[in-house]
């Protein structure tokens, strides 16, 4: 696989890389920055990337590692959450009346997902959004098969509990 193929493949999965980074980092700028950084790194060390079974799994793993590192290194997580809330308020205001309640419900799901511990959140993202099979998730997360299933199950149940819990509080 030559450099062009590596670039093309990275281009074709950039949205996916971005979504995974954003699931952890929340901020658009930081996620973008993270993905670009990874893409440059992969191109610089493309011999390694070429040896990897799949560039995609290799890249996703790097994105996952770097976003977790970034999250740990900056304790500005608090700030990020505020930033996100602001974004949500703006986008919510833009919604039309008839779709407002649907947007609200989706926001509830979003809150529930963001409420999960990082690893659960990642496993959920990789499976329920990106649609990876279990072997791929095992290698990306560096976990065994049963650990992945347990984590996924916990994530799904926690999302349900969070959504239903909020509903009960409202009614």
């Amino acid at each position: 696989m030559n450099r062009h193929n590596v670039i093309d493949e990275l281009q074709s999965i950039q949205s996916r890389l971005y979504r995974v980074a954003r699931r952890i980092l929340v901020s658009h700028e930081e996620s973008q920055d993270c993905v670009q950084d990874i893409m440059v790194k992969i191109l610089e060390r493309k011999e390694i990337a070429e040896q990897a079974k799949s560039i995609e799994a290799y890249a996703i793993t790097m994105v996952k590692n770097q976003s977790m590192d970034r999250l740990k290194s900056k304790q500005a997580g608090f700030l990020r959450i505020e930033e996100r809330l602001l974004e949500d308020v703006v986008s919510a205001e833009e919604e039309l009346d008839e779709t407002f309640s649907s947007a609200q419900r989706l926001r509830k799901v979003d809150d529930a997902v963001q409420h999960l511990p990082e690893k659960q959140r990642l496993v959920w993202q990789l499976r329920d959004v990106e649609g990876y099979d279990f072997e791929e998730i095992e290698s990306i997360m560096d976990m065994n098969a049963s650990a992945v299933r347990v984590m996924l199950s916990r994530a799904r149940k926690a999302i349900r509990t969070q959504i239903l819990g909020e509903n009960e509080n409202e009614s």
């Binding site: 450099r3 670039i7 990275l10 281009q11 950039q14 949205s15 971005y18 979504r19 973008q32 993905v35 670009q36 893409m39 440059v40 191109l43 610089e44 959004v129 990106e130 649609g131």
Partner: peptide, 12 residues
């Protein structure tokens, strides 16, 4: 799944 970004091509 529909969330798409188009990042600037890496500076290579």
């Amino acid at each position: 799944q529909q969330l798409k970004v188009s990042l600037a091509e890496p500076s290579t």
